[in-house]
Simulated assay, not measured.
Amino acid sequence: MSPENYELSAKTTDHNSWKDFDGKIAENWHAMPGYPSESVQAIVAHCSHLKPAIVVDLGCGTGTFTRQLAAEFDPGCKIIGLDPNADMLKQAASLTEGDLNISYRKSAAETMPFDNGSISVLAAAGAAHRFDSLSFYPEAARVMVESGVLALLHNRPDADRGGFMSEYMEIHEHYVPEYRRDWHSTPCGGYCPLPYERDLSNQDKLEAFSIQRWSWTERVSEATLLAQALSSTVIARAVHRVGQEKVFSEVRNAFIKHADPDGYVNMPYVTEGIFATKK
């Protein structure tokens, strides 16, 4: 699929917070960790009462999770990745094989380019904390079919398991003290705990939300780690404050300290999935 092979939605809004992902962050985003296959299979399992026709990945970025969805759902199911950032979508298109049943569109999650009651599954992996919740949840209910599934996933660095991840998170918190390792960015540029449970409990058109968690570990080389750091909006803020040389020197030193003889560090995560259905 060529970089130009994505659709531009007429319903795109000026979602300025997504400009954080322009340029080098988009170029390196493919290095960010994906999601355990069990979490994607859980989405499929939550659809056992449906025959999904269209599955949408919201805030799809470079399409990592979009491609994971395509690998688990029936080949006849149409997979659509939505993202408001053009740089991310160009990377997604270039990384996606043409024989996959995937298309990409430029659109914010709050103003989706779909008809009422037309979408079987809405998924967002590591993205929904950037959505305007007051607009997003009613919009999700609008486009979903009756009993359609909403799945919100995120990876939490499991720094409690110590080692490199703990030290890496300490670098984040040292240079960006308003950030906490269990927090995520907000649409206005701050940081806070994830609000999904609170927000879903206040929705009158969504119900029966449940939570599942999966612990896993990614083994990362120095090159992959540095690409991940270049794709981190928190690290980008640290670099803006004290300079790239200082921040990346600390990241490299932490890597050297914890690397195994083969030149890898372990980065443990907990993936959390929150699932709801449309009434």
Rank of each mutant, 00 (worst) to 15 (best):
E7H: 10
S9V: 03
K11A: 12
N16F: 15
K19S: 14
F21W: 05
D22G: 01
A26K: 05
S39E: 08
V40S: 03
Q41N: 12
I43N: 01
V44S: 10
S48V: 01
H49M: 10
V55S: 04
V56I: 02
L58I: 04
G59A: 05
G63Y: 00
Q68L: 12
A70I: 02
E72N: 11
D74Q: 11
K90L: 02
L95W: 11
D99S: 15
L100V: 05
I102N: 07
Y104H: 03
Y104M: 04
Y104D: 09
S107M: 07
P113H: 02
F114H: 06
G117K: 13
A125E: 02
A125L: 06
D132T: 06
Y137L: 11
E139F: 07
A140R: 01
A140L: 04
L152G: 04
R156I: 14
Y175L: 03
V176L: 08
V176E: 10
P177M: 05
Y179I: 09
H184W: 15
C188R: 15
G190E: 08
G190N: 05
G190K: 08
Y191E: 06
D199G: 13
S201E: 15
K205I: 07
E207L: 14
I211H: 14
R213P: 04
R219V: 01
A229Q: 02
T233H: 00
T233G: 00
V234Y: 00
V234G: 05
I235R: 02
V239G: 08
E245P: 05
F248T: 08
N253K: 15
A254I: 09
F255G: 02
D262F: 12
D262M: 11
G263H: 11
F275W: 01
